[in-house]
């Protein structure tokens, strides 16, 4: 029996594991030094006054934060519904066997994914001026819903299309073999599975919409239509203090962080298999 032996180390000095350990130690030291410097150099009193002034916190909370938060939710929820319906229709058009439908949907999707949402929102804000007599219902809600929903539909269409295509071909074959017409097979077999697949990415889309609803600040809104960003910005600029904006930002996190957590749960569940 022969015992194989390793070749002697090619060069001297610390072993690779020792070197990795040393490198890690250096990184910890750098971090610790940075924190200590920050603690001593920064003017914490000033920072506290600018970002977290107590009387400003009180003013922000009492002057209409609830309305602004509610408006943010209404704007994004409405846009999400329009985007979802529009996106589903576009996805089905994109997969249609009728070529012009595919072209129309393809053009729409590329167009609105390529344009800044702000431009679309501005355009919708100006439409009633350009076409005299045109009234967008539920203004300003209708304007924001339409503008953000039209953009969101383009993104959601691609997500939903991917979801539909992720349903195995055998599912359609099994459904058609039972004698289901193509439409019934879509509604009863393919779409329910496709939506299960796309729920996590669509929830991500909702998170993006909650943040994009802040673009509505650009429209000439009356106080009743203020959403979080407009509300925080107005208070901040009239008081030359950032506290209202910080609170508005925290409100966004109150909405988006639970949604992010939900997406993680849904994705984990999807990975485990249905």
């Amino acid at each position: 029996m022969s015992v194989s032996t390793l070749a002697p180390p090619a060069h001297r000095g610390p072993s690779p594991r020792q070197r990795a350990k040393r490198r890690r130690l250096i990184q910890y030291v750098v971090l610790a030094v940075a924190i200590v410097v920050l603690l001593f150099v920064a003017d914490w009193q000033q920072i506290g006054q600018v970002f977290f002034r107590s009387d400003m916190i009180y003013a922000t909370l009492t002057q209409g934060l609830g309305t602004a938060l509610l408006n943010t939710i209404i704007y994004s929820a409405g846009a999400f519904i329009i985007g979802l319906v529009g996106g589903t229709i576009l996805a089905l058009m994109r997969l249609s066997s009728v070529a012009p439908y595919r072209w129309i949907a393809g053009t729409y999707i590329e167009l609105f994914r390529g344009l800044p949402a702000l431009i679309v929102l501005l355009a919708f804000g100006l439409l009633p001026l350009a076409f005299s007599g045109l009234i967008i219902p539920f203004d300003p809600y209708g304007t924001v819903w339409l503008a953000l929903g039209i953009v969101a539909a383009a993104y959601m269409a691609e997500t939903i299309r991917a979801g539909i295509q992720a349903v195995p071909k055998g599912q359609v074959e099994a459904a058609r073999s039972l004698g289901m017409p193509a439409g019934v097979a879509s509604r009863k077999i393919v779409l329910p599975q496709a939506f299960r697949i796309v729920i996590p990415p669509l929830t991500n889309e909702l998170i993006l919409l909650v943040k994009d609803s802040s673009l509505a600040y650009i429209l000439g809104l009356s106080a009743a239509g203020y959403e979080l960003t407009k509300y925080g910005r107005d208070l901040s600029s009239s008081n030359a203090n950032l506290t209202p904006l910080v609170i508005a930002g925290l409100c966004y996190l109150v909405i988006t962080l639970p949604l992010t957590f939900l997406v993680q749960r849904l994705e984990a569940r999807a990975r485990r298999g249905r």
């Binding site: 055998g170 073999s177 039972l178 077999i189 599975q193």
Partner: peptide
């Protein structure tokens, strides 16, 4: 015609979003 033909696939192709009974009733 298909509604009068039963087809059984190599990969089963059961509908995963509904239970066994519903798989047998949906058609």
């Amino acid at each position: 015609v298909r509604s009068n033909l039963g087809m059984v696939f190599q990969q089963f192709n059961l509908f995963p979003h509904i239970n066994a009974l519903q798989n047998c009733t949906i058609g």
